[in-house]
Design a protein around this nucleic acid. Structure first.
Lengths: 144, 144
DNA sequence: GATTTTACATAGCCAGTGCTATACAAACTG
DNA sequence: CAGTTTGTATAGCACTGGCTATGTAAAATC
């Protein structure tokens, strides 16, 4: 009954959704990081982005062109990378979600360093609905 | 303090880990599904795998050759795909983890259908440590 | 047992994400 | 202002993970 329960179609849809989530995951990471770099250093240079992502510089350059194509960022050589309005909005959303996921994991007993590590992957698959549940849970804790 | 706290290197490592997690995620999904198909239908045919994953048949074939290369499966044309010992072990682990993640999400207030949907992506990023925390949380609930 | 149908494999294409090596342009430095 | 150093871009390679179209071999059917 375990799978008779769920149709093949429903399962296929879930996988499709997971694939879709992954395809935006990297964009989200880049956008968040560019936002962080601007907040910390006042600018986001390709080299810094590459270093923080743990990738080679040309890989970062390529990713940034994807961001530009997606309308999330612009760049001027030797002047850095800048988020568009859409990019900034996405970065804010992603950052908030990241914080919520980490806090939530810590709240249910995951050590902070592990929470930080796992959140990096988990956050991209947390839907609005689940995020709301996490927030509600945290709010419940706060009240005691 | 949120990012000054963590070195660029640490952050790069987190991203590297997330990338690594994704690279095994699909293998995990395939292996779990092949296990499911064997349990349900007594065999796992390429066409069934493709249908359930929501992908085209040649894509499934290609994925299966990756599984074979990874030592997780074998296959005989017109006889189906079979898990090796390593593949079976992985499938069991993945299935158990999936159940835990879904149960946990439901326990913290996520509706079941959403939990099932999100778990498909989340589970691959849940470390042993976090999984243990989830199990402990569920055990706590059970006790009351 | 010849034919059709089905199942699988192969070929070839595309985009994404990574790499190294290298070219080039801007910014410092002497 | 020539030269070096640094930052970015480009070229070209490899692998993953999708796709469609097509070939081929096994199974089923007549």
């Amino acid at each position: 009954m375990s799978t008779a329960r769920t149709s093949s179609q429903a399962q296929a849809d879930r996988f499709a959704r997971a694939r879709e989530a992954h395809s935006v995951a990297l964009l989200e990471d880049y956008v968040e990081m560019i936002g962080d770099l601007h907040a910390e250093l006042g600018e986001a240079r390709v080299a810094d982005i590459a270093a923080r992502m743990g990738i080679a510089q040309p890989t970062a350059t390529k990713a940034i062109s994807r961001l530009k194509r997606a309308g999330l960022a612009t760049s001027r050589p030797y002047r850095g990378v800048f988020l568009t309005e859409a990019g900034t909005a996405l970065a804010d959303r992603v950052r908030a979600r990241h914080r919520t996921v980490v806090s939530f994991l810590v709240a249910v007993g995951v050590p902070e360093d592990v929470a930080e590590l796992d959140a990096e992957g988990i956050e991209h698959h947390v839907s609005e609905h689940t995020l709301t549940a996490f927030e509600a849970y945290l709010a419940g804790i706060a009240k005691g």
